[in-house]
Design a protein around this nucleic acid. Structure first.
Lengths: 348, 348
DNA sequence: TTGAAAGCGGTACCAC
DNA sequence: GTGGTACCGCTTTCAA
């Protein structure tokens, strides 16, 4: 005989009724707190199974002030655009690996600092946040710190040493890319890059670039710096600028594989052979870099590991663990592909 | 003089006290319900601003049974691995566009059907879910439907016409890819694909493949079907198989750009020139397909649009809107690149 | 070992 | 128009 059920979700109360115990006991069984007889535990557990109970996290969160939710926040990148860059995905992937079986869920959110507020962090009671690519003076840092919740800053170069940070050795990356070219005999090296002043990450890489030049006694020449947005289109445009205005350049350094991808396309379209007439170096070591033609010489960073470590730091903070080493700097390495070779003897 | 504050978050009560009204009134102001005098509204709003109040969503959710959270669920793909496929990024991107300024947050979750339960949907009180790539008999469909929450199935070919679905014309896609090659004179066309029986999407594309052959009176030959996992490595291996065992093949059809990418790499490594000696077709039209060498001829689908529409259907369901057309099928089109050309006269 | 009850921060009904 | 209050589902203290 079918009952017209109210279809309400089963709650702790229903379990209590079914098991003939109080809701407090049910709660204790669920959370494994207090001491109860084996018998009650069994009865309650059976009731839970029979009735198909699942806890209501809203209620639990309300009471405990914890949400088991945390955020990955990317300032400066608007929602939709976030997903154009494989970097973020690799990162999230790493985060999720660390989160596996920890009962946390992740909310990924792109933010435009000027427009958006951070109220959702409070509203949702996020237990912690990972922030990507902030910088010392950004509002984001200020606001997040005000909230006083566990957080980890990635690629942010914050000067405050109390803050948890994950970085890579960007300076080394810029250095390695450039040095590699120099060792191959290149001297006229164009750099395609967004304004290094807006991002500490780019600034570091830029410094590495200059260090390599200096070490080789090659003077830095402004003409060889081409400012472009860091994306494929930027690379495309930038490469065309090189072709048109810097006909003595024999190599191009970019600070992202995505940019390099655009560079390769432009060079191909202009019939400039890579690496014969022009060497190209990328940065990141994203999955496709190996599948381009020619395959890309690039500065590899372990993005997934970055995500893992960030998540790990966050989890440990949330547990209230004492953490001595608050900044983690990952190394990078040059991954040689086919896009670079020795400079050909100039034909006169 | 500093007070030792309890540092508790300001709640509706604090606002009520500050504004000298009841919490009911505050709630009404916040939600714009009921009729109140302009004056009270102003006072309350000021108090909210002064105290920096943000609502506690857990509390609200508890009361209203809505979470303003929804899930994008990918069965068959385990958490971390989800992010290896640009398809999902693009899709999520579309979803977020539709969600813009709707106060919803998205949780992306890969699931292994066998292992995982769907309890998180209930626990978090998700207001709705978008499921990618389920199929009629999958547990996922059954379970989600039992939950009775708004949902949209994408790429799932569910036979139940009551269900909300977004699809592309996969059959047409398979057909177009193949027909294009046939028109170029190819007859020995290898197909690299995962088992079409496990996924309705692949089955449809496979059917399109066969239809094109049939139309051209080319008999389908089992030898030319190479089963591989749909990823770059699969493409790489598959192409090598073609090289070794099918030396009469002049073209390769794949059902994903990622696969095609692997194919191109293998062919390049084996010194098989594309498209001169072998034509290659991809599927999806992902961002990098245009940057490969040669650029990929591929079946383009508007993944972002898929995401937009799915999100839109979901939002409308949640609003309780009447929706007549429950299944949306997007078209696809052939995007010609450099990876296909007419078959060269066979050299004897 | 178990249970009664207060209360987390809201919403919504109903009385004034 | 405004306010009192029950209640959402759960955790937790304290008493039995």
């Amino acid at each position: 005989m079918k009952k017209l059920k109210n279809e309400k979700r089963v709650s702790i109360k229903d379990i209590a009724k079914r098991a003939n115990v109080s809701i407090a006991t049910v709660s204790n069984v669920i959370n494994g707190k207090g001491r109860m007889s084996e018998k009650t535990i069994k009865i309650v557990k059976e009731a839970i199974k029979e009735l198909g109970y699942t806890p209501n996290l809203s209620a639990r969160n309300l009471k405990t002030n914890r949400s088991h939710l945390f955020g990955i926040i990317v300032p400066t990148v608007k929602g939709g655009k976030l997903h154009d860059n494989p970097f973020y995905w690799k990162f999230v992937s790493g985060v999720e690996v660390s989160m596996e079986n920890k009962e946390y869920q992740v909310i990924l959110k792109g933010i435009v600092e000027e427009e958006e507020s951070f109220s959702f962090i409070q509203e949702r009671q996020l237990d912690g946040v990972i922030v990507l690519g902030a910088y010392d003076d950004s509002k984001t840092v200020q606001k997040i710190k005000e909230l006083g919740i566990p957080c980890v800053f990635v690629d942010s170069y914050l000067s405050n040493s109390d803050v948890f940070q994950v970085l890579i050795d960007d300076e080394l990356g810029g250095y390695l890319a450039t040095k590699h070219l120099i060792e191959l005999g290149h001297e006229k090296i164009a750099l395609l890059c967004d304004d290094p002043m807006v991002s500490p990450v780019l600034r570091k890489r830029f410094e590495g670039f200059k260090r390599a030049l200096k070490e080789a006694n090659i003077s830095y020449d402004d003409r060889f710096f081409i400012q472009i947005p860091i994306n494929a289109e930027g690379g495309y445009q930038g490469a065309n600028t090189v072709i048109k205005k810097l006909n003595d350049a024999t190599a191009i350094v970019t600070f992202s594989d995505i940019t390099a991808m655009g560079v390769l396309k432009a060079l191909k379209a202009a019939n400039v052979s890579v690496p014969k007439e022009m060497s190209v170096v990328g940065f990141d070591g994203l999955f496709f870099s190996d599948y381009l033609t020619p395959s890309l010489t690039t500065v590899y960073q372990d993005i997934e590991m970055k995500g893992k470590i960030a998540a790990d730091l966050l989890l440990r903070q949330m547990k209230g663990e004492e953490i001595e080493e608050r900044t983690c700097i990952l190394s990078v390495q040059l991954k040689k592909g086919e896009s670079t070779k020795g400079v050909s003897p100039s034909v006169l």
